[in-house]
Measured scan of single mutants.
Amino acid sequence: YYKILGVDKNASEDEIKKAYRKRALMHHPDRHSGASAEVQKEEEKKFKEVGEAFTILSDPKKKTRYD
């Protein structure tokens, strides 16, 4: 999950949140509406992965379990 968000394992809550926003905007489906179906599908997959990574890393209990 750290790799997906592009943050270090010791990243602060704020750094995780900023990285999530950056990656979410980058891969958001609306940004790729004019792209081919294949690209849209890949970006949607990445967008979901970013969301999942943020869900785990932003919750202290889940993050501890993950680490």
Results as ranks from 00 to 15, higher is better:
E15I: 05
H28C: 08
E44V: 06
N10G: 11
V39M: 07
Y20N: 00
V7F: 01
I56G: 10
T64A: 15
P60T: 07
K63N: 03
F54R: 07
K3P: 01
K9V: 12
R23T: 11
A35D: 05
M26R: 10
I4C: 09
G34I: 06
Q40V: 15
V7W: 00
H27E: 03
R65F: 12
L5A: 03
D14P: 03
S33E: 12
E15N: 00
L5P: 07
H32I: 04
A53T: 02
K48M: 10
K17D: 05
I56D: 04
S58R: 00
Y2A: 01
K41A: 12
E15A: 09
R65Q: 15
P60F: 07
Y1G: 07
T55Q: 13
A37C: 11
L57H: 06
I56P: 10
P60N: 11
R23S: 12
Y66G: 11
F54G: 11
K3A: 12
L57G: 08
A24D: 08
Y2N: 13
I56N: 12
G34M: 10
K62Y: 06
K18C: 11
R65V: 15
K9L: 04
Y2V: 00
E49G: 03
T64G: 14
I4Q: 09
L57D: 06
E43R: 05
E52G: 07
A19G: 08
I16P: 02
R23D: 04
V50Y: 03
N10H: 13
K45H: 04
K45Y: 02
E42W: 03
H32G: 12
P60S: 11
D67S: 06
E38Y: 03
K41I: 08
S58L: 04
G34V: 01
A35W: 01
D59Q: 00
D8W: 00
S12E: 06
K62P: 04
A53P: 01
S58D: 04
R65C: 15
A19I: 02
K61E: 15
G34D: 10
K17Q: 14
A11P: 03
I56M: 10
S33F: 11
K62E: 15
E13L: 15
R31V: 08
D14M: 09
A24T: 11
R65L: 14
E15W: 00
H27K: 07
K18L: 09
F54K: 12
F47E: 09
K48P: 01
A11D: 07
E15Q: 09
H27D: 05
P29E: 07
H27Q: 08
E13R: 11
A37T: 11
L5T: 08
E42G: 09
K48W: 01
I4Y: 01
N10T: 10
K41F: 02
T55L: 04
K61L: 12
V50S: 06
P29V: 02
A19V: 02
Y20I: 09
G51L: 13
K63D: 06
K46C: 03
S58F: 03
T64I: 13
R21A: 15
D30H: 05
I4V: 12
F47I: 04
S12A: 04
A35K: 15
R65M: 15
N10F: 08
E49M: 11
V50M: 05
S12I: 00
V50Q: 05
K41G: 04
K63W: 03
E43L: 01
P29H: 05
V7R: 00
I16D: 03
D8I: 00
D59S: 05
L57A: 06
K48H: 05
A19K: 02
F54Q: 07
K45Q: 15
A53V: 01
K17E: 13
V39D: 02
Y2L: 02
F47N: 10
R23F: 10
K3N: 14
K61A: 12
L25Y: 13
D14E: 14
K61P: 09
P60Y: 03
L57V: 06
K46S: 04
A53D: 01
K22H: 12
M26P: 05
T55N: 14
L57F: 01
E13Q: 14
E49A: 13
V39F: 08
K63M: 06
E15K: 01
H27G: 04
K45G: 04
Y20E: 13
R23K: 14
R65D: 15
A53E: 02
D30E: 12
K63H: 14
L25N: 11
A37S: 08
Q40R: 13
E49F: 01
I56Y: 09
K48C: 12
G51T: 15
M26F: 04
L57C: 03
D67I: 00
D59A: 01
Y1A: 10
K17F: 11
P60Q: 10
E15Y: 00
V7A: 05
A37L: 13
H32E: 07
R31I: 06
R21I: 15
E49L: 12
A11R: 01
G34P: 05
G34C: 10
Y1Q: 01
N10W: 03
E43N: 07
S33H: 15
K46L: 10
E44L: 12
E42Q: 13
A11E: 03
V50E: 06
K46H: 06
K9S: 14
G6F: 00
I16S: 02
V7E: 12
S58Y: 01
L25G: 12
S33P: 04
K62I: 08
H32R: 03
L5G: 03
T55S: 15
E38D: 11
E52K: 14
D14Q: 10
Y2C: 06
E44K: 12
A19W: 01
R31F: 06
K61H: 13
R23N: 14
K41T: 03
K48A: 11
K62C: 08
K9Q: 13
R31L: 09
R65I: 10
F47C: 02
S33T: 13
K61W: 09
P60G: 10
